[in-house]
Amino acid sequence: MHDMGGVSKFMCDAVDVEPHALSAFDREVDAIRQLLGAKKVMSVDELRRGIEAIPEPDYLRLSYYQRWIRSITDNMLAKGVFTEAELLAALEDTK
């Protein structure tokens, strides 16, 4: 899905050349990714692998940084940085 070079179904799509400002969400996800890389918690290659694992309908629906936070979360769970139970509890707090 991510491997888009020359893929026919996108060949007739116009490019949206307008500027799109980044949101606070986008900037924070980007910063957390950088910090996890600098601290050797998660490499950029692991981030990419996590993004590539997102099923196609979700990949196309999610924004760029929405894919990132999903991959970061996936990686943190897989590495045991936090557990799914801890994540579910923290998500309850965000309601």
Binding site: S43, D45, E46, R48, R49, K79
Partner: peptide
Amino acid sequence: NPEDLAFA
């Protein structure tokens, strides 16, 4: 090799 880095 990124093919390995991606899996730590």
